[in-house]
């Protein structure tokens, strides 16, 4: 076991009886319940498993280096996306985003990727498949998408904030293109010491971002004619793209 993981083990022991008032209106509370080495193709990490008091979702943190009492620890919050992360779907950019985060943090002395187990948008995978089915029929309407999914941001951020806090980090630098995420975490008492844009390296699958403009609902249309939803609650930026999505014309 690496010394980093050994340090995280101490947190697991510390959390054994942890019970706090909880974060947010739903009093969300999490506990570190397991830590182990996680060597990856992106570098040496530790994986930390969390239990929470609200649902059966098993969130994890992928931790690089000893982050306890550290300031300005780079941190990326990633929402689970089975189709993208695991299956390599080209209907979203989740895998590119996850890989870019792991690769980047893998090159740094410290960093954290929080992997939130709430499938993409909404109630879950079932409704994501339905949203794709609508897109296949050329229908990508705002109302249908609203009915299919809501991001329970409140819960996302409350859990993420508690996880960061439990890891003993003093302050983070958030890797995101969405400044609202910074505010959301700050609301839960996390010291966010700046934001780093999350820029994806260009590849044959995301070149369309450089070639097309967002459609009416802010989605980019890919080469297969499918709109890419902002599954990570974070707009995509590929190297060479400006800081903001161009305004619609």
């Amino acid at each position: 076991m690496t010394s980093v993981t050994a340090g995280l083990q101490h947190l697991v022991e510390r959390d054994r009886d942890h019970e706090c008032e909880g974060y947010g209106p739903n009093h969300l509370c999490v506990r570190l319940v397991g830590a182990a080495d996680l060597p990856t193709r992106f570098g040496e990490f530790s994986i930390v498993a969390f239990w929470n008091n609200r649902d059966a979702k098993e969130h994890v943190a992928i931790v690089r280096g000893d982050v306890r009492d550290r300031e300005q620890v780079p941190c990326r919050v990633h929402s689970e996306c089975l189709t993208g992360d695991a299956l390599g779907s080209l209907r979203c950019d989740c895998r590119d985003q996850l890989e870019a985060a792991l690769r980047r943090i893998g090159e740094l002395p410290q960093g954290i990727v929080l992997y939130m187990r709430q499938e993409g948008r909404g109630i879950g995978l079932i409704n994501k498949v339905r949203a794709y089915a609508l897109q296949d029929r050329g229908l990508d309407t705002v109302e249908a998408n609203l009915a299919l999914g809501f991001r329970d941001d409140e819960r996302d951020y409350a859990i993420a904030a508690h996880m960061i806090h439990s890891l003993g980090v003093k302050s983070i630098r958030l890797m995101t293109n969405n400044p609202q995420k910074v505010e959301q975490l700050q609301q839960y008492g996390i010291e966010v010491d700046g934001r780093d844009p999350h820029i994806l390296p260009p590849n044959p699958h995301n070149l369309f971002y450089l070639q097309t403009k967002a459609n009416r609902s802010g989605h980019f249309i890919d080469f297969a004619g499918k709109p890419h939803l902002a599954e990570q609650g974070d707009w995509v930026r590929v190297e060479g793209m400006p800081e903001r999505i161009p305004e619609e014309e």
């Binding site: 339905r130 089915a133 609508l134 029929r137 229908l139 990508d140 309407t141 705002v142 109302e143 249908a144 009915a147 299919l148």
Partner: peptide, 13 residues
């Protein structure tokens, strides 16, 4: 009407 068509397609599932 785009939204109505979308909702109809959704309900059909």
């Amino acid at each position: 009407i785009a939204d109505l068509d979308g909702v109809r397609a959704l309900l059909s599932m």
